[in-house]
Amino acid sequence: MSAAQAMPGSNPAALARWRQARRRGHMAVLAVTSLLLALSVWAVQGSVIPGTDWRRMGGFAEVVTGFGRFLPPDPTLLPTLFEPAVQTILIAIIGTLLGAVMSLPVAVLGAANLRPLGMPGYLLARGLMTMSRSIHEIVWALIFVSAVGLGAFAGILALACRSVGFVSKLLAEAIERIDMRPVEAMKAQGARPLDMVRHAIVPQLLPIGLGTLIFEWDINVNRAAVLGLVGAGGLGLTFHNQLIASNYAGVTTVLLTILAIILVGEAISVRLRRRLV
């Protein structure tokens, strides 16, 4: 990929090298493109063509009318959306907070420079991080619905478990990058370990941690909306009800409400993070 370099001027040997590198770059792009093309053809032929209900879908006109049924949104639904929206937001907040609390020990155990419990603790923490991220929120919700029953509690637990991976990974990285000079300065003054954590370590981690939390809350609103589909209440439940009633316009209203919540949340989080960092 050296084509981005400037063309050498008069030196003929350099010019030849440059041309060769450029040709090699083109060959690489061509190879990657044809590989991706071949993979897509394989995927379309292997799955999309046999795996889609073409007869149910009908022609182009039917698809267009199908999407047309979602418009215009149904404004009469709006007053009933207030309470589920509040529930979704609160589930996201509590789930994120619980996830943050759970992330703290995982991050400390999984920080490569600390390893307070040695290698086994480190591996356990890293395994938990991967597990938390690779299990989808729907699956977490299924597990917790079967443990604590339907309701917001299952959703909160699912969100918390899903958040642990991302939050603790970033936190562990922040711990690994910590500037040790303030810690050593305090140690030289004879400070107690707890004071060292309080005054030399926490201030370094707080901005990153809070920024990650705000970011994660944003995603968790989006996730909370889907958890209602498997019984965790909130907007997902309303969506489900509109779906069962085949009220396409109502579905659009619910989607727009979720979008509005996310937009407001993003505006707030951008402002908050700018103040933090």
Binding site: G51, T52, M57, G66, F70, V226, L229, L243
Partner: peptide, 28 residues
């Protein structure tokens, strides 16, 4: 971009299923 991001892909999948029927295409 924000709209695509704000709505969970599972919800998108359901919306596409409502129009296109069950199958791989709505998932893709």
């Amino acid at each position: 971009i924000t709209g695509a991001r704000a709505i969970h892909e599972m919800i998108w999948a359901i919306v596409f299923i409502m129009v296109l029927g069950f199958g791989v295409l709505p998932g893709v």
